[in-house]
């Protein structure tokens, strides 16, 4: 059996008050776990709770010792006017350019604000995805991606990634069904 990266038991999380949970699951290296639930169930909040980004009101999160986490958050700051290239962006997170789709790999030397919205979104996603991390948390990764980006992401996630564990929150049921090895329903706090 692969190493357990994360063990979550009865997790209830929120901000000033609990807004999400309870949630329980175990994630092993090589697994891709989807978090499912209705809008407003607090899936993104629970994802943030996994690395300590929000307040935990109840339950337990056990992480493997030395676990390196990469989190792709929803919503990015507007980068228009910032003179930063794709190479520089990937260098910031330590992401590799190996495996990038051909329609983006050749444009890494250009400024980010010269890319299309879909290309920029994919590159930012890639900067969180192709990093030396044990656990990758993806929050609505297909938002603002164009069709080519969604297809490439699904293909990339569908290939074996035995070295990492991945947790995905997405409203895109097709993506969840296609790439997740397991889906956990998120309860609504009573």
């Amino acid at each position: 059996m692969a190493e357990v990266l994360l063990r979550v038991t009865g997790l209830v999380a929120g901000y000033a008050a609990p807004v999400a949970g309870p949630l329980g699951f175990e994630l092993r290296r090589g697994e891709i776990l989807g978090l499912a639930g209705p809008n407003g169930a607090g899936k993104s909040t629970l994802l943030k709770a996994l690395w300590g980004g929000v307040r935990v009101f109840g339950g337990q999160i056990e992480r493997a010792p030395g676990l390196a986490i990469s989190h792709q958050a929803q919503g990015f700051d507007d980068l228009r006017g910032v003179p930063l290239t794709g190479h520089e962006l990937l260098g910031l997170t330590g992401a590799t350019a190996d495996g990038l789709p051909p329609w983006l790999a050749g444009r890494l030397g250009e400024r980010l604000d010269r890319l299309s919205g879909g290309q920029l979104q994919f590159l930012r996603l890639w900067a969180c995805l192709a990093v030396p991390a044990d656990l990758i948390l993806l929050d609505e990764p297909t938002n603002n991606l164009d069709r080519a980006g969604v297809a490439y992401l699904a293909d990339w996630l569908g290939r074996a990634h035995s070295g990492q564990g991945i947790v995905i929150v997405s409203h895109d049921h097709g993506l969840i069904d296609d790439v997740c090895t397991r889906v956990v329903d998120v309860g609504v706090p009573s």
Binding site: W51, A68, S70, A73, V82, L92, T93
Partner: peptide
Amino acid sequence: LLGRLFPEFYRAR
């Protein structure tokens, strides 16, 4: 730069 582009980068680690 990370603080602007990926504000959660360090905290997640």
